[in-house]
Write a protein that binds this DNA or RNA. Structure first.
Length: 421
RNA sequence: GGAGACGUCGCAUAGUCCGGCCUAGUGCACCACCCUGCUAAGGUGGAGUUCCCGUAAGGGAACCGAGGGUUCAAAUCCCUCCGUCUCCGCCA
């Protein structure tokens, strides 16, 4: 939910953002109109209600003789109050629907346009080169007996897999390293629920444009989360936070579930795009004025992880049209995947400013004692997908894979993964 | 899954049977001031959240877990849902 005050006082900012995203600009005027209607409906209702309250006292203290006439009069008033109340409900529903469909105004500097209009901020670590024909991660996974997509499909269908042996160990090592990185920065670890109620799913914005990406369990009216961001954002829903000692930072460890409904035929091979994976997610609750600095901080941590894994990568400033409704800015880090000859997204970090917090009613107390929505940010610190880049980047001619130094302590000092015969 | 109890303004509680004197009382904690004086007590006042009108001072409305309903009037009566607790059953 955008700031209604911004909408009222500075609608041009919102219009510009809508234009950059390729969203409807007319929506802004519809929202302004809905806001006016809503406020006038509230005024009408409240003055009638005040009249009714006053009249109720008269009725209560009236003599037996006078009462019947007064009650008859009150009945008419009650009917009008009820109608006015319904008008308020309708006006508020309309307002919520229209304003709720306006995306978070982008931050200055975010490139306009769609998916292909991103800006590359920097490229680090180069593109791995080989003096032999590199194998892709599926082939390596089979040689190392680390990834078993065949049996994954047998048990659960396409886009499912088993991580076995070194594959399983490598993922745990990666997740543990990510957790340690977060811990060193003062993040509080959280292992989160992966099934959540509809309100939480709606509040985090995933029932909007991502609705058909989400697994739903009708028998229990629960949603499977595609990221622990959902639970991490819901964690403090309806609370007033004390941020005087600094931001609240959490590191959520969870399995993620995605239907991948819109990606039929895309990335069918291997574990690049799957229905289920594990992820360590950072989530920060900060003062609005600190959000952009926190965003840089999250990117820096992500880069530290990529560098620890000795991967080549680029950081991109995602274009407005590819942001998702809650994010005002998003940086993706994409790692070089040798056999694809391209960069693929390994992390994503979004600055949701106060948009998500306003919807989830997460606030802090300003110096004047008033409440105001906090800013929320999230970012990936490790996921199963990283195995793709790690295996392919560090492979050797014989199919073995060198383990990056930083990961070795998490694998009992192991330096290399060897093919299993 | 079955049976039952409960959910009130930071915490603890009253009020709910028998709707209107509840603009929700009391205790504790909190803040300001006063009195007194020394490690405590007493007095006075204030204090929640959301929204609407207003430049402001201020005024008004809503909120007793959530949402509906009955009624001139609901914390109070009725229904649905959510949550907590107790007992029983079930449990890869």
């Amino acid at each position: 939910m955008i700031d209604p005050q911004l909408l009222r006082e500075n609608p041009d900012v919102v219009r510009q953002s809508q234009r950059a995203r390729g969203d409807s600009v007319d929506l802004v005027d519809a929202a302004l109109d809905a806001d006016r209607q809503r406020r006038s409906a509230i005024s009408d209702f409240e003055s009638l209600r005040a009249e009714q309250n006053a009249f109720g006292k008269t009725v209560a203290t009236a003599s037996k003789d006078a009462k019947p006439a007064l009650v008859a009069e009150a009945q008419d008033l009650a009917a009008r109050v009820k109608a006015a109340g319904q008008a308020v409900t309708e006006a508020e529903t309309a307002f919520d629907r229209i304003v709720g469909s306006i995306a978070n105004p982008i931050i200055d500097g975010v490139p306009s346009g769609g998916e292909e209009n991103f800006t590359t901020l920097r490229e680090v670590g180069g593109k791995a080169a080989f003096d032999f024909e590199p194998r892709d991660h599926v082939e390596l996974g089979e040689l190392l007996k680390a990834i078993d997509v065949t049996r994954g499909a047998k048990v659960s269908g396409s886009r499912f897999y088993f991580l076995s042996g070194m594959g399983a160990r490598l993922e745990i090592a990666l997740m543990s390293m990510a957790l340690d990185t977060a811990l060193a920065e003062g993040f509080t670890p959280l292992i989160t629920p992966t099934l959540v109620r509809p309100e939480i799913m709606k509040g985090t914005g995933f029932l909007g444009e991502h609705a058909d990406e989400v697994y739903y369990l009708p028998a229990d009216d629960l949603y499977l989360t595609g990221t622990s961001e959902v639970a991490l954002a819901g964690f403090h829903a309806d609370e007033i936070l004390d941020l005087t000692d600094g931001p609240l930072r959490y590191a959520g460890w969870s399995t993620c579930y995605r239907r991948e409904a819109g990606s039929a035929g895309k990335d069918n091979r291997g574990i690049l795009r799957v229905h289920q994976f594990n992820k360590l997610e950072m989530f920060s609750y900060v003062l609005p004025e600190e959000a952009e600095a926190e965003h840089d901080r999250l990117v820096a941590l992500q880069e530290r992880m990529l560098q620890a894994c000795e991967l080549g990568y680029r950081v991109i400033d995602v274009a407005a049209g590819d942001l998702g409704s809650s994010a005002a800015r998003k940086f993706d880090i994409e790692a070089w995947v040798p056999t694809q000859g391209t960069y693929r997204e390994l992390t994503s970090t979004s600055n949701c400013t106060t948009y998500q917090a306003r919807r989830l009613d997460i606030r802090y107390r300003t110096e004047s004692g008033k409440t105001a929505p906090v800013a929320t940010l999230n970012g990936t610190l490790a996921t199963t997908r990283w195995l793709v880049a790690i295996l392919e980047t560090h492979q050797q001619k014989d199919g073995s894979v060198l383990i990056p130094d930083a990961l070795r302590p998490y694998l009992g000092g192991l330096e290399i993964m060897e093919p299993v015969l």
